[in-house]
Amino acid sequence: MVEDKTSFLERLLDRPIALLIMSNAIFAVSYFIWGVMKVWTTSPIPEALKETILGGK
């Protein structure tokens, strides 16, 4: 049996469809994670500010 010595990078670069899918998937997943992080870390309006607006003169 002949051992295939082709490197992983070469095999990956030889598959244009896989590259096409990856280029979209990596973008979509990382953007989605970024969005989820942004939504999770958004804080509510500070209570002090609300009190100033609602009750302050």
Partner: peptide
């Protein structure tokens, strides 16, 4: 900031 239409309207 996170808010709701109700809260923002009141403010």
């Amino acid at each position: 900031y996170d808010t709701s239409p109700d809260e923002f309207y009141k403010l």
